[in-house]
């Protein structure tokens, strides 16, 4: 009985995701002749919808891996400080790019993601170094918060000395958008997501053991350190690449694994990989649809929409848990 209920939920989540993809892809606004073959669809709508879908899946998985890594259900790319770290990397390349004479295309496709990755790994390394010394779970989140403030302040200082156009560029990036992603940029986005998905799938049983504690991992004949490294590489890469291409996208990494666990009724990774991806995709696609269709003549920032959806959802989930 329990199993069929979960299957039914999974089916509806999958159905909802496909529905949202179709809604987001469906022609809107003024009619365009041969829409499905048009430039509007192929170069603008399709990359936007695909980046929202892939970004949502990647952030969901990244959140799931981070919550496993820190054995903390409140861990997520934002709270742990990975997104602020990646933002710092992007800010550096945005502001230093023109001074260093970097090519715009090269900067978009390679340097910005690498800088975001650098920032993300830096934060995660600091977190892990402290993780061994700080035993309390909430200390970890506090460190994440403090790191977020630190990198935020560093970005503010860089912004203060930047030129107006660079500030504009960075502010627009900071609002989060799937509109800016080009078809060719989907390749690194998809690559990072597939890599993260493979790590999750391959080590799914080991990650279940990891949740119980290092001692259980060692007793099962596996290395906790190796598992930790896989979790770091997977979660940081996915979060950093999405941040580099789409801007900081909040709450998805935190909420998607929770929704999945609620549906599956278990923490077992093999059950949550698929539903976390679906939940992440649903959140970002829904935000993209709202962003592009709420106002006729304007586009709302995706990050703001996700925060408005995400904040009450997290509070509700925490209240239910404590209740």
């Amino acid at each position: 009985m329990q199993l069929s209920r979960q299957h039914l939920f999974s089916f509806w989540v999958g159905f909802g995701l496909i529905g949202l993809i179709l809604i987001d892809l469906w022609p809107s606004g003024e009619a365009v002749a041969d829409y499905w073959q048009s430039e509007i669809f192929l170069e603008l709508r399709l990359p936007r919808v695909l980046s929202a879908l892939i970004g949502g899946i990647a952030l969901g998985w990244s959140g799931l891996m981070m919550q496993t890594l820190f054995r903390n259900p409140l861990a997520g790319p934002f709270l742990i400080g990975i997104t602020p770290g990646a933002t710092f990397g992007v800010a550096l390349t945005t502001y230093l790019g023109s001074s260093l004479g970097l090519n715009e295309t090269l900067s978009h496709i390679a340097i910005q993601p690498l800088a975001a990755l650098g920032g993300a790994f830096l934060v995660l390394s600091i977190q892990l170094a402290l993780h061994r010394k700080l035993s309390q779970m909430h200390s970890l989140l506090l460190v994440g918060l403090v790191l977020g403030y630190f990198f935020g302040a560093a970005v503010d200082i860089i912004t203060q000395t930047a030129q107006a156009q660079q500030v504009k560029q960075f502010v627009m990036w900071g609002m989060g958008s799937f509109d800016r992603v080009l078809l060719r940029e989907l390749i690194p986005l998809l690559g990072a997501t597939i890599m993260g998905g493979l790590i999750l799938t391959y080590h799914r049983h080991a990650f279940n053991t990891y949740l119980l504690g290092d001692i259980h991992v060692e007793s099962a004949g596996k290395s906790a350190k190796t598992l930790r490294n896989w979790l770091i590489v997977g979660s940081a890469t996915m979060a950093a690449i999405v941040t580099a291409f789409c801007g900081p996208i909040s709450f998805v990494g935190l909420i998607a694994p929770h929704i999945s666990r609620k549906i599956q009724g278990t923490e077992a990774h093999q059950k949550n990989i698929f539903t976390t991806a679906m939940a992440g995709g649903i959140l970002t696609l829904a935000a993209d649809i709202i962003a592009n269709n709420t106002l006729e003549n304007s586009t709302l920032p995706v990050n703001a929409i996700l925060s408005i959806i995400g904040a009450p959802l997290v509070i509700w989930m925490l209240a239910r848990k404590s209740g």
Binding site: G29, E30, V32, I40, L44, R45, R48, S177, D179, R180, A291, N292, N297, S298, T299
Partner: peptide
């Protein structure tokens, strides 16, 4: 402030 699709249309 609009996304690229709305602008380019």
């Amino acid at each position: 402030m609009v996304g690229l699709e709305k602008a380019l249309r």
